[in-house]
Each structure stands twice: as structure tokens, then as C-alpha cells.
Amino acid sequence: MRLSSRITSRLVVSPFVVVAIFTFVLCVLWSAQLSFTSSKIFPAYDYVGFKQYTRLFANERWILSFQNMLIFGICLISGALVIGFLLAVMIDQSVKWESFWRTVFLYPNALSFVVTGLAWQWLLNPSLGLPELVRHLGWTDFKLNLLGEQKTALYAVSIAAVWQASGLVMALCLAGLRGIDGEIWKATRIDGVPRWKTYLHIVIPMLGPIFFTAIVLLSLSVVKGFDLVVAMTNGGPGTATEVPAKFVIDHIQIRANVGLAMAGATVMLISVVAALAPWVYVQKRRKEARG
């Protein structure tokens, strides 16, 4: 009986092990292998060394995509962390209608990036959206075309992303705040420490692991960022909002340059691993500390 159950468990799990190894090991290795070839539409195995990588980093669009990703990442992470944390702190002041506020701040998280992108695209529409409303209110020569200008389009995308992501940070921070011992508040109140100082010097350091998790999660979504850009600007105007994730897909689907695309994808993977490495390290240390 015992033996047969054990065998059953192995039989049940083995197809999943095979699928996981195939997808997350072999496919990754295959992609990496193709990045060393000059594959166009179909895989070719004429190895060209690091040529695709030198091409990649000589490619203006890739460089721009990578820069955009970094700028977008800084905007999204700092924006969502600050707003999400402040919202959590406000909600934690034993406010009325707590669940109403939480619901309102978190609902964008349930939406597709495509929906978010299109909603903001319409809000920011230069001729009929919010800018027109400002003109309507009497500021008749007001002009604002965030999405239409090369200089500002990326920031417009960042605003939409912050709008969508802040609720998640709020939920994480709120869970953290609720986990803080009430004694700390009593003690600081007796000592006459102002609330904001308590937050700055005691609460924020205590929420460190939560901020850390939030930063890792947001970084991952920055590297993977594709849908929002495609829906909101499709990389434009010009190449102002191109991102690596879109570069790779375009070079597979439209430009039929798989070798270069796979070099880009490999660099993306390395970026994700770099973003994850400190997290994995910290998790491991914590586990060891716990024994």
C-alpha cells in the first residue's frame, strides 16, 4: 500500500516535471543558443559568436529601449512606493469606510494593462481629454500633449503604470503596518515622540522587507513591461517609448530577426536574474536564520 501510493505520486508528478524542465530549462537554453546564431525567421545553427550581442548594443533602438526601461522603472518604482506607502499610512489611521478606500485604491490592479493604457490615452487626449477640460474652464490657451511629445510620452506611460501599481504596494504595506506591535505606538506616545518621527525612524525601517518585496515585484513588471506600452503608445511617438520586451517581440514577429531577438531576450533574462538575486539571497539568509 505504502509503496504503491508513493509510486502513484511519482507517476502523477512526472509529466509536470518533464513539462517544467522542457519549458523553463530547455526552452531558455534553446533561446540562448539561438542568440549565438544568425537565425532569421527559422532557427539556423551557423554560430556567429557574440556578433548578435555586439549588434544589439550598437543598435540605437535597443539602447533607447533599455534606457527607457530604466527611466520607466525609476518612475514607476519610486512613484508606486511613495503613493502606496502614504495611502497605507492614511488608511491605517483608523479611518471610517476603510474598505471603501482600499477598494478604490486597489481596483486598478484588477484591470488589464490594455484597459489601463486605453483609459489613460483617452484622458490625456490633447484635443478632447483633460487638456480640453482645462481650456473649457477658462485657461483658453492651455496646451498639454503628454503622449504626443517625444520628451514626455514615457512619463505619461509611467503615470498610468503608477496608477495601476500603487494599490498593490498599499495592500502590502497595510498588511505590514497591521503586523506592527501596538506597544510601539503606546511607548512613543508616552515619550512624546511625534507620529511622523515614529513613522520615519521606527515604522519605515520595520517595513524594510515589505518595501524590498515590492521593489522586486515592480522591477520584474518593469522588465516584462509590454502590454501597457503597446496599448498606450505602441512605442511612439517615433521611438520615444520603446522597451526591450517590445523590441524582442517585434524582432521575432515583424522583423524576422530571431538571432538578434534572442540576444535581446537573453539580456532581459540576465536583468531579471540581477533583480532577483538579492531577493533570493535575503530569503535564503532568513530561512537559515530561522533554522
Binding site: V28, A32, A265, T266
Partner: peptide, 17 residues
């Protein structure tokens, strides 16, 4: 491996699939 799979960018596995 599954943990890795939860974080991997799809771009690196899409073409083989």
C-alpha cells in the same frame, strides 16, 4: 525551477514554444 518559472520573462521562452 518552478520559482524560476514564476519570474522568467516570457520573451526568453516564446520563440522555442
Amino acid at each position: 525551477l518552478l520559482l524560476f518559472g514564476a519570474f522568467v520573462p516570457y520573451q526568453i521562452i516564446i520563440y522555442p514554444l
